[in-house]
Nucleic acid binder design. Structure first.
Lengths: 343, 343
DNA sequence: CTGAAAGCGCTAACAT
DNA sequence: ATGTTAGCGCTTTCAG
């Protein structure tokens, strides 16, 4: 019952009466081997339940491990879950296994994860950078041939491939949609911190769309939140303003949940909404939620294929690839402008 | 620009002019070291950007790797995402890193993943078993001391710890809630395949609740689907029945999405619904969705703590731990029974 | 306090 | 077709 040592190549070799190298050969289909020994080796492997120690192999071969390191803010966030699955699907036939972790958008945790991944000699590193994280320490690894790709946001301190959504244009289109339906007071509920790349870009799109429509920017209409509860509170604050917005824009999927939940609780169906990032059941809400949909599958696939190309020797200049977003009009953005209610 | 070899312990040792072992000592805070050498070593480590090769270390030390292998059906499913994050949170301060992959509920993919994890000598293996998968091959590993935990569903062919939700009792309570509000024709939209443990258990709860109320079981009211689109179609079929159900029960979160989407599309607000597993925005729907909520955090935490206890030497009998579900009444289950509409 | 030698499990490079 | 030797990067063991 005690921790029995797992069988090794040598054990198998002894069992059959051949050398370790011969066993290695049949298992890796390296070099020739008589049908006879091949049979015997396979039988012994099955009998002993031998499973080659991949770490030992990697040590000897010297190359990177057949793993891909992935750092995302939160494993439980459906958006990043979809991204992760897309990456997994893309690298699976290359035999790469996913090593992953949540950074909680904290630079220290991100660093702890990347350090562990590097110590494991991952083949590829894909990171959603946390605000405030510096990536200069990755430079030597990249120079040494490790593909490093930043996802969703550009990394800081390292020039490498960045895969991002068309945040600015997407937000612009969403706001323009609201403006086209007569809205002039549009609240922005963005995630935190304000320095977050995606938030900045989406806010920039918001402002440019307003500017094009000659609508003055009102700072009172821009709020932030950390999570869904916070977004609910922010929504309530906006609607309680003396001159409240007639429409709201959600800066990401979590903010969208908060806005929708708060509007439902307060039974406000007169507030137009457009959300950045699609959410489940958007079409089942009343009114159905119009969104600027990101494409998590394409983000993941692009990040993975870019990294694999680097792994295969692509030494071209670092690229920033922008994955388009798509405005999906479902109704919530086309609500008529109503007179502000009394607080 | 070519693949520069990463610095090794020996490189650091040479740089400082000490032996490799001394560097090792400093880095692992093993044995003593003069403040002088310690300084120098640390400086050289920083200068060369040395990062110890964890695989080499593990080879030598012989113990399991500081990774935890996790197999779930789908990384993009928010339920399993929440479970995964909970596991991660629980094992983080033990220094374990997550190695994970999606099985897509296919035994072959599950096996490929577990084999890879075993080849990497994971410290712990947590698996959501796919239907049709056999786990006898894990027996020797478990005997050798590897903690193996099955999550969400029991595994087949291996006696070990199982962590599951109270599927049967939860479904029973959900159905009883509908019955209490007068419903006698209740449709069941379950996931596939029919042999899936969670589906079977939840269907059993459904049937027992009907039986208690002396409601005859009608097979025509039990349907299945693979995904949200399928659940939408199944919902439409049920409602088109000559004697259609007045209430629907969703067998899992994905089925719930399908039911809600289809009811919204067909503007049927007269159909009562209870879903197994909570979903985002359940409270913002109209009517708000009543659910039998699972506790993914507790499922993950329990699986992880159980496995860690085994790792720490717990040799007690294999346990099956049932994590309670909770009926959350929000409105959709309390709709009045209406006369069936014409098809 | 530090170092030299041996060896973890595996494979590259040369034998035979 | 198979075996031997050496060595990947690290730590254990035993000396100093």
């Amino acid at each position: 019952m005690a921790a029995n040592r797992r069988p090794t190549l040598a054990d198998v070799a002894r069992e059959v009466g051949v050398s370790a190298k011969t066993v290695s050969r049949v298992l890796n289909e390296d070099g020739p081997a008589s049908a006879q020994t091949r049979e015997q080796v396979l039988a012994a492997v099955a009998k002993l339940g031998f499973q080659p120690n991949l770490m030992a192999r990697n040590i000897r071969v010297g190359g990177p491990d057949t793993t891909i390191g992935l750092v995302i803010p939160d494993l439980a966030n459906p958006f990043f879950g979809a991204v992760a699955r897309s990456i997994e699907d893309t690298v699976r036939d290359r035999g790469l296994t996913l090593l992953m972790g949540s950074s909680a958008d904290e630079p220290d945790r991100e660093r702890a994860l990347t350090d562990k991944f590097l110590a494991r000699r991952v083949s590829i590193l894909i990171v959603v950078p946390s605000v405030g994280a510096d990536h200069a320490h990755l430079k030597s690894h990249r120079t040494a041939g490790l593909p490093v790709v930043f996802l969703d946001r550009p990394g800081v301190g390292l020039v490498t491939d960045n895969i991002v959504s068309s945040n600015r244009a997407g937000a612009h289109d969403g706001i323009a949609h609201l403006v086209a339906h007569g809205h002039r007071r549009i609240g922005f509920v963005g995630d935190l911190p304000p320095k977050l790349y995606t938030r900045r870009e989406r806010l920039a799109g918001y402002r440019s769309a307003l500017q094009e429509a000659d609508i003055p920017h009102d700072r009172a209409l821009v709020t932030n939140a950390h999570d869904q509860r916070g977004a609910e509170a922010a929504t309530a604050r906006l609607l309680a303003l003396p001159d409240p917005p007639t429409a709201l824009f959600a800066g990401n999927n979590i903010m969208a949940l908060g806005i929708v939940a708060e509007l439902a609780r307060s039974a406000r169906k007169d507030v137009a909404v457009v959300a950045f990032d699609d959410i489940a059941l958007a079409e089942a809400l009343e009114p159905a939620l119009s969104v600027v949909a990101q494409d998590p599958e394409e983000l993941g696939r692009t990040a993975a294929t870019t990294a694999l190309a680097r792994l295969d020797g692509d030494r071209s200049r670092a690229r920033t690839i922008t994955v388009p977003t798509r405005l999906i009009v479902r109704g919530s953005g086309e609500l008529p402008v109503t007179a502000p209610q009394e607080a």
